[in-house]
Design a protein around this nucleic acid. Sequence first.
DNA 1: GCCAACGTTGGC
DNA 2: GCCAACGTTGGC
Length: 139
Amino acid sequence: MRYWLFKSEPDAWSWDDQVAKGDAGEEWDGVRNYQARNMMREMAAGDRGFFYHSQTEKAVVGIVEVIAEAHPDSTADDPKWDCVDLKAVRPFARPVTLAKIKAEPRLSEMALVRRPRLSVQPVTEEEWRIVCAMGETEP
DNA sequence: GCCAACGTTGGC
DNA sequence: GCCAACGTTGGC
């Protein structure tokens, strides 16, 4: 299993919106960036990801699971854009802020720190465990 | 609200 | 194929 991070502006699509979709989940649509799309094409069903709120909150707030592998994005005009489907797994007991991530030396190589604008990112297993521990949440 | 980073577009 | 111009993102 691999790990990822999905970034969303909470005004557009928030953790609560994701939770409201239940086990049926929802397309992670709207991605129009090749690198982010290519990440989604590498995902397998069962992979886990962090749900990150950008802009106002800037924190990892929950864990999601990939429930459908890459398929055409129903909101795209051009068939070259794919997306996966995600469902909420559990919220973080304590959201882990970007400031805390930047303050943790073991997370200095995280894509979130290195490539802040990429909206879908890979996360290593070690980074996954560290961030879950910081959030007092079961990995 | 500003600005830096960076991806995309389009003219040559 | 290069590169300048432009648009978007996201942290501060």
